[in-house]
């Protein structure tokens, strides 16, 4: 697929075990950074009732939605059972400490960032 990599900013601007929001014309996208510096991008909208996932607590490769505590897998965008639902994923990568994002949504099953 032909990604258009958009420059976002330095990795260090995203707190470890945290997230930052990118505002785009297609809505807000959350970029997460895990404890061991993996990064993931999901649409900033919980599949439950639209809670802003960027505001949740990041633990392991999951984020807990701040509104009703659904856990969402960062690599797949899928809610952890028994909840069912999915937040769209976007390809994201770090090159030389700089984060870039593509707005071509990642396809289900392929971790965002690896589809390049």
């Amino acid at each position: 697929m032909n990604e258009n990599w958009l420059h976002i900013g330095p990795l260090e601007d995203i707190p470890r075990q945290g997230a930052r929001v990118v505002k785009t014309a297609v809505g807000e996208i959350a970029i997460f950074r895990t404890v061991d510096d993996e990064i993931f991008a999901l649409r900033d909208k919980c599949p439950h009732k639209g809670g802003p996932l960027s505001q949740g607590i990041v633990h392991g490769k999951k984020v807990a939605c701040p509104l009703h505590d659904w856990k969402i897998n960062l690599d797949s965008g899928l809610a952890v059972a028994p909840d069912v639902g999915c937040a769209a994923r976007y390809p994201v990568r770090v090159v030389d400490g700089m984060v870039s994002l593509s707005l071509a949504p990642g396809s289900a099953g392929v971790p965002a960032g690896e589809s390049a």
């Binding site: 976002i8 930052r20 505002k23 785009t24 014309a25």
Partner: peptide
């Protein structure tokens, strides 16, 4: 604040 704002 957002880390980036990407205009349409």
């Amino acid at each position: 604040i957002p880390i980036a704002v990407i205009p349409a």
